[in-house]
Nucleic acid binder design. Structure first.
Lengths: 203, 203
DNA sequence: CGCTAATCTAGAACAAGTTTCAGACTTGCT
DNA sequence: AGCAAGTCTGAAACTTGTTCTAGATTAGCG
């Protein structure tokens, strides 16, 4: 039921699993207070009751830690969304509604959003697998909203562009260069691409 | 002719202007070698023949420095593009061609691209004015390619989404999660939005 | 139980961004 | 020229992410 996307991870003991949870919790807590800079590795370690070296054994860098935190939050969101799916008439509306719902969730914890999104876009190649997991989760959420079983390549392209817009629009909002209304418009604009691929006469 | 977008800057002397140029040059040079991490403030200062404190007086943080470097490069690109404008039949084609040309320029200096784009997306509120300048430059380049004097609000929205996609696609390419071909597809996909707003029957 | 390997802890040490400061140099002005 | 204000230099200090080490603890196993 809950997807356990960690094939190479060598099965943690119970205490280790508990440590991992404490670390992620401390990370999210600190991030909620003061965003990216407030997540300081020494503080995370102390709040989680774990030595600094141990923290680094579990998450090899601050970026890894925050991307894992994002994975965690996205899982929650995905579960929540599945319980109450969007109710729009066509796919574009449902996707836009879903993303706006996610956006409102982020608005409730803007500092946490800041920490997670900044980490995600700052991540270099060493974090690619983890970032990819986040990306696949996002894709799954959007495809769910579209209600598609077997999307065409064109539709997958549209979804990719929607994800691009989603991430980048979040960044402009977080850095205070775009209003909430502007983000809404951008999301609605990009979702029109879905209509374009639904009736494949645009070519 | 050359837009001097620095209204609050109190007019540098000749030697100061020269220092500023040396710093930006050193920054681009180091970035071309090893990307974001290779741009180390002490090294930039030394390469530019300037004290560390002076470097920080000109650019209050590494992020400011790299965003300014990007402004610089974009100016060049804009000038170059104006000399040889894209030759496509419709606006969408011309924009896609322009962005792919810019993309190829970045491919020639992938490390430099890495440093600039990472700085741009990692920038927090304290860098908003500078990031905004970069954004306006990008918008100008895209509008040039579209060949529009007075874009409608809808068209401006499409341009915003194109910019989002452009930035985010660059990031996925730089972090090795998307191929060059994939970036091309994403750009072409999002450029279809232009057609949508050109013939306003899609609503 | 007792052994061995792995893990965890506390803390020092290192790296790079940023700040600070005393003194030397420039600039603008009279 | 001579002074006042601002700027630049060199170097040290401080911050926070990251690495390293020696010793304590835990887990798995005969």
């Amino acid at each position: 039921m809950t997807a356990d996307a960690r094939p190479a991870a060598p099965a943690l003991t119970e205490r280790q699993e508990a440590r991992r949870r404490r670390i992620l919790h401390a990370s999210a807590q600190l991030a909620s207070r003061g965003g990216f800079e407030a997540v300081q590795m020494r503080e995370v370690a102390e709040a989680a009751g774990v030595a600094l070296g141990t923290l680094y054994r579990y998450f090899p860098s601050k970026i890894h830690l925050l991307v894992a935190t994002m994975q965690d939050q996205l899982q929650h969101l995905h579960t929540t969304l599945r319980k109450r799916p969007p109710a729009g008439d066509d796919a574009a509306q449902r996707v836009a509604e879903t993303l706006m719902r996610a956006f409102r969730a982020l608005q409730r914890e803007p500092h946490l959003a800041d920490a997670m999104v900044r980490a995600l876009t700052f991540a270099d190649r060493s974090v690619s697998p983890e970032v990819d997991t986040v990306s696949r989760l996002t894709t799954a959420i959007i495809l769910d909203a579209m209600g598609l079983e077997h999307p065409t390549p064109e539709q997958l392209s549209a979804v990719r562009v929607i994800e691009h817009t989603w991430h980048s629009a979040l960044i402009t909002w977080l850095s205070g260069r775009a209003s909430i209304a502007q983000v809404k418009i951008d999301i609605e604009t990009v979702c029109r691409l879905i209509d374009l691929t639904a009736n494949p006469d645009g070519d």
